[in-house]
Structure formats: structure tokens, C-alpha cells
């Protein structure tokens, strides 16, 4: 990554995001010590808001910043213009296509390459932000990725609050405290369906651990 990009990323994550996340919002983190302190690793979280990846990035020490890469949909973020530049240079996404354009296209190749560079990926297995504060269906992409990189730890993280603070389709940020519950790292053990079932069970357990104010 170019130097200017790194400086922009430092300003963005180190100052702007931290100010918003720690002051305007506010965090209640459980088991921060379970987060990885080196790459490669996959942080797999539920998805409610554009701020999800930013919040997760602030939980890791700033020195890891050059290695932190949110995995994001190419069809949404790389439509050209300012958004593409911002997503690539400042947020530092690894773009992933959600649909194949050719039948033999390997959609996971760029993500796998990032793991081989020992980067820490922020991954949203739901693939979309969905309805606010509802756990959607987890797509099997996570298991496919874990299968290819069985030595890379996958850390399940359950988040609550950003679906209220900045949900899909709204641009007004409303302050709320966020809950971030980190689970134990897991590794691929030979079966995709079993891996996804295990991940789902861990996410449900993390969610059951909290008590959340009703929002409906």
C-alpha cells in the first residue's frame, strides 16, 4: 500500500473512527483478549451497518492497521468515483464479487491471497446488512474460505447496536452504546456444513449472553 494511503488510513481509523466509536457511540466489549494479535486471521461478525467494520478495526491495536482488511462487496463498493477510492485507499477493503461473471471464476481468490499475506480479515458471512438487529442466514463462503486455509483461526464476533445507530438506508447517526461479544477462535475440521453449524451455534450463544433493550 502506498504511503499516502497509509497516512490517510491512520488519520481515518486512528482519529475519526475512534472519536465516533468511542465517544459518540461507546463500546461494551466482552473478551477483547480473544481477538488476534497477528495475522493471518478471520474475524467473522454479523452485519448491520457500514460502521461494523470500522468498529471491529478499532478493537485491534493501531500498529496492526496496515494488516486489517475488511472484505467488502465489489459490486457495491467498486462502482467507481469517490466511493471506490475511499473504500480501496482509506478503508482498505479486499473487494469480493458476490456473483460469478464466468462459470469457472474463483470468487475467493483475492481473499485467500490476503490471508497468504498474513492479513487480518474482517468478514461478514451474512453477505449483506439485512434487517437491523436481526441475525440473517450465514452463507457458506466462510466455510469455503476456512477450508482452503485450515490453519487460519476464525474468530466469531457478535455485535449489537449499530443497526440502531446507523442502519441500512439511513444517513443520520444516532448515538447508542454498542455491545461487542468476542467468541473463542475456531478452525476448520473437515466438513463445511458442520463448520457453519458450529459458527451459527457460537453466534447464537454469544447473542444469548447479552440482554438488549427492545427495538421494534
Amino acid at each position: 500500500m502506498r504511503l499516502i494511503g497509509l497516512v490517510l488510513r491512520l488519520l481515518f481509523y486512528g482519529v475519526v473512527v475512534r472519536l465516533v466509536v468511542l465517544f459518540v457511540l461507546g463500546l461494551n466489549v466482552r473478551h477483547r483478549e480473544r481477538l488476534p494479535l497477528k495475522g493471518p486471521a478471520i474475524i467473522a461478525a454479523n452485519h448491520n451497518s457500514h460502521l461494523d467494520a470500522m468498529v471491529l478495526a478499532t478493537l485491534l491495536p493501531l500498529r496492526l492497521l496496515p494488516r486489517i482488511r475488511p472484505v467488502a462487496a465489489a459490486d457495491y463498493f467498486l462502482r467507481g468515483g469517490l466511493r471506490s477510492w475511499f473504500a480501496t485507499e482509506v478503508v482498505g477493503i479486499v473487494p469480493i464479487r458476490r456473483q460469478r461473471t464466468q462459470p469457472d471464476e474463483d470468487l475467493l481468490a483475492p481473499v485467500q491471497a490476503a490471508l497468504e499475506r498474513a492479513e487480518i480479515l474482517i468478514f461478514f458471512p451474512e453477505g449483506t446488512r439485512g434487517d437491523p438487529e436481526q441475525l440473517g442466514e450465514f452463507k457458506s463462503g466462510l466455510a469455503r474460505l476456512a477450508e482452503r486455509c485450515p490453519d487460519v483461526p476464525v474468530i466469531p464476533v457478535f455485535m449489537h447496536g449499530l443497526g440502531k445507530a446507523l442502519p441500512r438506508g439511513d444517513w443520520v447517526l444516532v448515538p447508542f452504546f454498542l455491545d461487542v461479544f468476542v467468541g473463542m477462535p475456531m478452525r476448520f475440521a473437515g466438513d463445511r456444513a458442520a463448520f457453519m453449524a458450529d459458527y451459527r451455534a457460537r453466534m447464537d450463544a454469544l447473542r444469548a449472553d447479552g440482554s438488549f433493550a427492545p427495538w421494534d
Binding site: K164, F176, A213
Partner: peptide, 18 residues
């Protein structure tokens, strides 16, 4: 912020909270 994060709120009132 602590109060509004604790109490039940309605989705319809998100902008009102602002």
C-alpha cells in the same frame, strides 16, 4: 446515551432520538 441504550425504543422513533 446510557439511558436511551437501556430503555426500550421504537424503530419508528430513530429520528426522534436524534
Amino acid at each position: 446515551k446510557e439511558y436511551l441504550s437501556l430503555v426500550p425504543t421504537r424503530r419508528a422513533d430513530r429520528r426522534v432520538l436524534f
